[in-house]
């Protein structure tokens, strides 16, 4: 973030020149103006307009009647909204630790220069490029009774597969399994790049001390990637908090709203029942929750940069 003017390598002479070059000029603004126009109209304005809408009984086209905090009171009295907050946390709890631990496990196993490791890395990342539509389609076919892959596998052992997406106790777990399958590539890659940044000579020193592999793992590898671990956790919390497509496409939020996350509540409220104000209020609550996690991410990455 160094000011361009004070670049350390500049000599006194060229610094005097660069003062001239980098003097503030209005026409320089033209370079950033196209982006800033879109940024202001499609991000900054909607952000504040959304907050404004959340205080109104709004419809599709206008903000309608001002109702103060009424939408927020309605939200907290709505058992389905409270359920959706709980569902979202439950989903994060199911997916984030699994993604971090499986990702770490795969990174540790596949951090080597062999061809088979490269092929497996490519395989584990491949699902990440698919869209949520394809992923949910694949997993609904896996979970579907009788015809599904899971039924077939259970059938091999003469057992009956659980009805993952229909059972109230299992539906969210089914969505979580599909999500971990979809998202495992990113944590694995983040861990891999962290592992590759550990200086090799530490390992050589450990080998000279006759440290065994467990000792090396516990006292060198894992402490070195502690920060990446926290980073992965926070990135995944922010990401998984925004669950929508999987729940909408796999269960429609059912059975009995048990798999309805906050974003799906917003979709139902604002874009199906067209209760725009209430939907906007729910978005603000989601925004607040995500902001807390994003701030944690900022703090962690900044400390990493300082270190």
């Amino acid at each position: 973030m160094a000011e361009p003017r004070t670049a350390g390598t500049a000599t006194a002479r060229s610094r005097r020149k660069s003062v001239d070059i980098y003097a503030p000029q209005w026409r320089n603004f033209l370079f950033v103006a196209p982006y800033l126009t879109i940024f202001a109209t499609l991000l900054v304005f909607p952000l504040f307009w959304g907050i404004w809408l959340s205080f109104h009984k709004a419809d599709t086209f206008s903000s309608g009647r001002f109702v103060g905090l009424d939408n927020y009171f309605r939200l907290f009295r709505d058992p389905i909204f409270m359920q959706s907050i709980w569902n979202t946390f439950y989903f994060v709890f199911l997916t984030v630790p699994a993604l971090a631990l499986i990702g770490l496990f795969l990174a540790l196993c596949l951090n080597r220069r062999t061809r088979s490791a490269a092929v497996l890395r490519a395989l584990f990342f491949s699902s990440s490029v698919l869209s949520v539509t394809i992923v949910t389609l694949i997993w609904r076919i896996v979970f579907i009774p009788d015809l599904g892959l899971l039924s077939m596998v259970y059938g091999l052992f003469g057992a009956q597969a659980p009805a993952f997406l229909a059972d109230p106790h299992l539906a969210m777990i089914g969505i979580a399994i599909a999500t971990v399958w979809w998202c495992i590539g990113l944590p694995m890659m983040l861990f891999l790049s962290a592992l590759q940044q550990i200086p090799q000579d530490i390992y050589e020193a450990a080998a000279l001390d006759n440290a065994n592999r467990w000792q090396t793992l516990w006292s060198i590898t894992l402490p070195s990637i502690k920060r990446t671990f926290i980073l992965v956790i926070i990135i995944q919390i922010v990401l998984q908090f925004q669950l929508f497509g999987q729940a909408w496409l796999m269960t429609r939020g059912g059975p009995n709203n048990l798999t309805k996350p906050i974003v799906l509540y917003i979709y139902n409220t604002a874009f199906q029942r067209w209760d725009i104000g209430l939907g906007a209020a729910a978005s603000e609550i989601l925004f607040l929750l995500i902001l807390i996690a994003a701030m944690a991410q900022y703090l962690v990455t900044r400390r990493k940069a300082d270190a």
Binding site: L43, T60, F61
Partner: peptide, 14 residues
């Protein structure tokens, strides 16, 4: 730091 969901509804109106 602004997630898509925080601006979706207003954007849809715009």
């Amino acid at each position: 730091a602004v997630p898509e969901q925080a601006v979706l509804i207003a954007r849809h109106q715009i």
